[in-house]
Design a protein around this nucleic acid. Structure first.
Lengths: 159, 159
DNA sequence: GTGCATGCAAATCCTTTGCAGTGAT
DNA sequence: ATCACTGCAAAGGATTTGCATGCAC
């Protein structure tokens, strides 16, 4: 899908959500949505705030947090807790459900899919009598690049 | 394994670790270890601190955090990030690796095992060229008890 | 015009840090 | 005796909250 089309669609989804829940369609909210859908990383609230500031939008942190919550509620954005203490977000409209693999050294985030995770989720829900709307699977590891770097560092320290 | 025996074993593991890393074997550290192994829930640092205080041990928050870090390093304790912003811990000596299922309503934590998760982890590591020492799988759901409560609440609001 | 959403700053929560004093080695 | 570990309180970072103002309705 092309950017303008995607932007248009998510704006529509958000508008519908806001109307249905009798929330105001403020400029700030749409600016934040647009900014999120023009990025494609796993960002945190602060970096989103800083980016908006850099682009000369005068939107407060409070509004950023408030809007993120709304976007999570209408499933346009997904919220993650990757090890560290700050939440990370990513746009999720039209994306296939996926999980994450994080490098403990350089914090690189990769994505992957495996249908077995959904199977496990369903099975455990049945078994333990839970209704399971979502899950989070994070693999923590060391990526190739960092492994190589570490080996070099070791060699140096010996030499 | 009986409690005293378990306590003895984990104390030994911790002692070995401290010696190997030339860290001091302080009373505070062993008191904390013992407290953790006399509990069996998924606790946070603050509740551990409060519990120790209630038992009249004068151990500071700083020491609690410091010791938890050591215990995680020697794998006597596992650290989790369950959705909310505070870390949760659990004893892990002699326990089979397992994953978690959390009720979004009452915060109840359940545990489960599924060998497929390990398979997925290995497969993704191979595929994406990562070495993966650990992972975190959390299923977020609504438990039966809470579902029933909610249905009752709905009925009431209609009536 | 009404009152929900905003901006700002202060407050809060969890965690880490600095420093002076204590105790393990 | 040394200096890593402790307790305490203050600092820190992420997020939330309170309140006066502004703007969507």
């Amino acid at each position: 899908m092309k950017q303008p089309e995607l932007q248009h669609q998510v704006r529509q989804v958000f508008t519908d959500y806001l109307e249905k829940n009798q929330q105001r369609k403020t400029n700030e909210r749409f600016i934040i949505l647009e900014e999120i859908y023009s990025r494609s990383d796993h960002f945190d609230a602060e970096s989103l705030f800083t980016e908006l500031k850099k682009k000369k939008f005068q939107i407060s942190r409070a509004t950023v947090y408030n809007t993120l919550e709304l976007l999570v509620a209408c499933e346009l954005v997904t919220k993650h807790q990757f090890g560290n203490n700050m939440a990370r977000y990513e746009k999720s409209y039209g994306y296939r459900q996926h999980d994450h693999l994080i490098c403990l050294d350089c914090n690189k985030v990769m994505e992957f899919c495996d249908p077995r995770i959904h199977q496990i989720s369903t099975r455990m829900g049945d078994l333990l009598n839970f209704e399971i709307p979502h899950h989070s699977l994070i693999l923590y590891g060391h990526c190739r690049g960092c492994e190589i770097k570490e080996q070099l560092a070791k060699k140096k320290s010996i030499a």
